[in-house]
Computed example of a mutant assay.
Amino acid sequence: MQFPRLLNIATKVVKDTLLSLPTNIRHEAEDCRIEFSEMDALIDIDEDLDPDLLGLFEGNTRSDPLPESPDEMPRIRLFLDNLWDECGGELSTYRHEVRITFLHELGHYLGLDEDEVAELGLA
């Protein structure tokens, strides 16, 4: 599937997911930028990225002090080509994986570590 179609689907899934969250968490999430990327396009730019990543949280968590520089601003990146590949081309599975991956990375933004995110069923 082509990236524009994956992007449209992922954007709707993330929007719907945000709307389903409790109001206080939804408001917390407003300060975190969400980006949709293709890993294939980034791997040549950033060799430190795991080529199999589905999502990534970068920057200061909600509990950290205010960022001192733009590169510390919170950001969630979802790698749509990897998510699509992970799902074997199944559209319903893709939607589910986008949602789970977004919530997993949002958990990191809210200050949860890997174990805490896993306890919520978002691993």
Rank of each mutant, 00 (worst) to 15 (best):
E30S: 10
D31L: 11
T11M: 07
G121C: 14
E28W: 10
D40N: 02
L42K: 11
S69G: 09
F102Y: 11
E105H: 02
I25C: 02
A118S: 14
R26V: 04
L19K: 09
L42F: 07
W84D: 01
L106S: 00
I9C: 06
A29M: 13
L103I: 01
E35M: 02
T11A: 09
P4C: 05
P4Q: 08
V13K: 05
V117W: 15
R95C: 15
W84L: 01
P65L: 06
T17L: 09
N8R: 13
F36Q: 08
G111R: 13
D81R: 05
S92N: 14
R75M: 00
G55Y: 02
G55L: 03
F36T: 08
E28I: 08
P65F: 03
A118Y: 11
L91R: 14
L83R: 03
S37F: 07
T17S: 12
D64T: 00
G88W: 07
F79D: 09
I45R: 15
E72Y: 04
W84H: 02
H27V: 05
K12R: 13
F79N: 07
L103C: 01
Y94R: 11
L110C: 12
H104A: 01
F36S: 10
H96K: 12
E47H: 11
M39I: 10
I45S: 11
G89M: 03
F102T: 04
N24S: 12
V14Y: 05
N8H: 12
L91S: 12
L54M: 05
E119D: 12
S63V: 10
L110K: 06
P51V: 12
E47K: 11
D71T: 14
L78P: 00
R99L: 05
A118H: 13
E86I: 08
G107T: 11
E58R: 09
K15V: 06
D115K: 10
E28R: 13
E90A: 04
N82Y: 12
D46E: 15
L122K: 09
Q2H: 06
D44M: 06
L78Y: 04
T93M: 14
E86G: 06
K12I: 07
C32S: 01
L112Y: 15
V98E: 00
L106Y: 01
V14G: 05
L18M: 09
E28C: 10
S92A: 10
S37I: 08
E68C: 02
L80Y: 07
R99H: 10
L112S: 10
M39N: 03
R33I: 00
E105W: 01
M73Y: 03
L53F: 03
L6W: 02
R33L: 00
L80Q: 06
R62P: 10
E119R: 13
E114H: 13
I45A: 12
L21T: 02
L42V: 06
R77H: 02
I9K: 03
H27R: 10
W84Y: 07
I76W: 00
E28N: 08
I43F: 04
F3A: 05
L21V: 05
P4M: 07
G55K: 04
K12F: 09
L19M: 09
L112V: 04
L56S: 01
A123G: 15
N24Q: 07
P67K: 13
G88I: 05
C32H: 00
K12S: 10
S63W: 11
R62I: 13
E30W: 06
L66F: 04
F102Q: 05
I9F: 04
K12C: 07
